[in-house]
Simulated scan of single mutants.
Amino acid sequence: MDLPINPPVAPMLAKAVAAVPEQPDDGPVWSYEPKWDGFRALIFRDGDEVVVVSRSGKDLARYFPELVDAARAELPERVVVDGEVGVVREIGGVRRLDWDSLSQRIHPAASRIDKLAGETPATFIGFDALALGDADLTGEPFPRRRDALRHAIAPGGSLQVSRVTQDSAVARDWFSAFEGAGLDGVVAKSLDGLYVPNKREMVKIKHKRTADCVVLGYRVHKSGTGLGSMLLGLYGDDGEVRMVGGSSAFADKKRIELQEMFEPMRLDPDNVAQGEVSRWRSAGNGEWIPIRPELVVEVAYDQMENGRFRHTVKFLRWRPDRDPISCGYEQLEVPLTYDVHDVLEGS
């Protein structure tokens, strides 16, 4: 591979801010775009040679062979583009990014990879360009890179281009509306900014919310001492409680305190429950200890997917004033009405 920019290259990163940055009165300085929630990836194409690498440098080509084929068919002969790999599925009557389907694509068996490539094909959403032809674009401002990206990727194929705007009001609307398509917030790039690998030169605004959940049980820490994570639930309209995720990352002293608090509340002191009750289960260890559903905690979360928290959540405080049965899904704001194809350039 002999491109102006060759792998390995660490992608440019973003730092978190609290709100969408406003444009100054004397003219725009920001370009805004949706924050896609998938696998960050760089695609390098030099003729028939295609390399797809993750943010950490992992080879993604073996897991997404359909994207390699699409790169050969749809990209220019010599190009490097930055973007996100996602799987789009119809959920609740709209097409949206589906993290569960995406994560299942990382599998050691080639036969399984080939099967899933046909059943849940991936899409690449481009949002930057590092090189086109013999030109190294990393030293160019974003509008120049954006023009190269649009030249490299035409709408309608397996490779797509994200929408952008310079209107901060539109970006704020995207922040709310596009979550229904499975997106994760908004990213802002400096119009004059260059592409700086592995540096936080962009800014990101992510969804942050709180919810009151009932504590259903816990796992013991991998050290064997103290609480590893508390497992949380929400009540549905049918009155049944469902596991929705977990909260962990407690200090050593707090882990021991929590285990001592939960031990007398065990439903069956002599047994533990089995099974994968959350997507954060440690490999080879599905055991958890159910307790009486009497405690309520307030947690911070960013996104829901398929009735569960998308990521592990942060413990904020106890809520002794809340009745556990009142901890239901109706408190959550999860829009599910925006189609992911409406977030793509040219759609």
Score class of each variant (00 low, 15 high):
M1K: 05
L3V: 09
P4L: 06
P7K: 10
P8R: 11
V9H: 04
A10S: 10
L13V: 05
V17M: 05
V17F: 08
Q23E: 05
G27C: 07
P28K: 08
P28G: 10
S31D: 10
S31A: 14
Y32D: 01
P34Q: 00
K35A: 01
W36P: 03
D37E: 07
G47H: 09
D48I: 08
E49C: 04
E49L: 04
V51A: 11
V52N: 11
R55S: 10
S56N: 10
G57C: 04
P65C: 06
A70S: 03
A71Q: 00
A71G: 00
A71S: 04
R72S: 05
L75Q: 03
P76I: 09
P76R: 06
E77D: 13
R78Q: 07
V79A: 07
V79Y: 02
D82H: 02
G86Y: 03
L97T: 03
W99P: 03
W99A: 13
D100W: 02
L102Q: 00
P108F: 01
S111C: 06
L116I: 10
A122S: 15
T123K: 12
T123Y: 11
T123N: 08
F124G: 14
F127V: 14
L132E: 15
G133S: 03
D134F: 03
D136C: 13
T138C: 12
E140N: 15
P143H: 08
P143V: 02
P143S: 07
R144H: 06
D147M: 05
R150Y: 10
H151F: 06
A152L: 13
A152N: 09
I153D: 12
A154N: 02
G157S: 08
L159K: 00
S162H: 04
S162Q: 10
A169S: 08
V170K: 13
A171F: 02
A171T: 00
R172A: 04
S176Q: 10
A177E: 11
E179M: 12
A181P: 03
L183M: 14
D184I: 08
A188R: 12
G193C: 09
L194K: 15
V196Q: 15
R200D: 09
M202T: 12
V203H: 08
K206W: 01
T210I: 01
A211K: 00
D212H: 05
V214A: 11
V215I: 11
V215Q: 02
S223F: 07
L227M: 15
G228E: 07
S229T: 13
G233N: 13
M243I: 15
V244F: 02
G245M: 12
S247Y: 15
F250E: 05
A251Q: 14
K254A: 15
I256A: 13
E257F: 15
E257Q: 15
L258G: 08
L258W: 12
Q259K: 14
F262R: 08
E263N: 13
L267A: 13
N271I: 13
Q274A: 14
A283S: 12
N285T: 14
I289K: 06
E294D: 13
V297R: 00
V297K: 06
V297P: 02
E298V: 06
A300Y: 02
Y301F: 04
Q303D: 12
M304D: 03
R308Q: 07
H311E: 11
V313Y: 02
V313W: 03
K314E: 12
L316Y: 07
D323V: 00
C327H: 06
E330V: 07
E330Y: 01
Q331H: 09
L332F: 07
E333W: 09
P335C: 00
V340E: 08
L344G: 01
